[in-house]
Design a protein around this nucleic acid. Sequence first.
DNA 1: CTTATAATTAGTAGCAGGTACTAAAATAAA
DNA 2: TTTATTTTAGTACCTGCTACTAATTATAAG
Lengths: 183, 183
Amino acid sequence: MSTSAKEKRQQQLIEIIETDPFVTDEVLSEKLKVSIQTIRLDRMALAIPELRIRIKDVARNNYDKVRTLKKSEIVGELIDLDLNQQGISLLQTDETMAFERTKIIKGHYIFAMAESLALAVIDARVAITGVANLKYAVPVKAGEQLKAKAKVTMIRGKEYFVHVFITVKDQPVFRSKFILKTL
Amino acid sequence: MSTSAKEKRQQQLIEIIETDPFVTDEVLSEKLKVSIQTIRLDRMALAIPELRIRIKDVARNNYDKVRTLKKSEIVGELIDLDLNQQGISLLQTDETMAFERTKIIKGHYIFAMAESLALAVIDARVAITGVANLKYAVPVKAGEQLKAKAKVTMIRGKEYFVHVFITVKDQPVFRSKFILKTL
DNA sequence: CTTATAATTAGTAGCAGGTACTAAAATAAA
DNA sequence: TTTATTTTAGTACCTGCTACTAATTATAAG
């Protein structure tokens, strides 16, 4: 067995664990046709922790992630609000929100930020019935901080008209008009 | 110690584990001032699994959730595609995509479905530069299946104009025009 | 006040999925 | 062939339990 056989096996090991972090050393040794000890030496060499630690990591990561994702991450942080008048929110983007190759933030994150701010300024049970003139001026890159400003421009009966502008370092990247209707 | 003392402790135990599933029996026994054995009897009675199982559950739940959420759930399933012409996708909605009280699907899910289909029909490195006439006809309720149809209406140099219509049981719920620009 | 019953605590063996270590065997390179 | 590398074997120990038996303590009933 040459050195490259070892390297190849370790590469396979990484792939297997990445696609299934819940795999035991025993199963790995069966899949790669080597002893458990070899698997353990490989994990050592690659600094891959044992099953329980991996599971705990997955659990902790996603536990936190799902919490923040459901709470505010997708939405941004509300930093100012005058009910039925205006509101400002911030959203720190990262690579998980972007296309892998281009690192451009996916549109629905920007949309979600705008939508949730629009909903926040009209604090009522509302439904979005229309959006117009939604425009991306410049693609947003992962890592940039988005600042959204919402303004209520008109209230007509049960209908609310809200403009949302999003900027990166005061450069406009997105603007939209939302039409909201109270239920 | 009355029976209600036991019930009270078990109630506290449920609360502690719910807010922190990563807590060991030992810590629980310290917090609740009873022996480890009592904690274990309580867990038995309440059918709460041991720490490792709890961690594994959290990991598995969220692992699957994040995967499907990141991969295609948010996007829908592509069922038909003529490149640069048209495409159709389906998205099964559920309660995790909806507002808790109203069960109305959040707008950005619908938007994401439309956006990703628009991107899929133009199979190139593109950026969305504008969207117009985005309109929600009827709020979508959790559990309904969305069907998105995209049509490329015009190609002008590097710009692509794509219309996306979304229906629930052939009832229109959303329509939009995307303007995409190849990079 | 004593007894029956419920609740709690103690203690042991065993398990999964390892770590950490030592040592021997197999394979490759010189 | 000898040396170096890689792989395998084996043991003691670890955590956070389960499953079980037994003893102790608290509480309620007669």
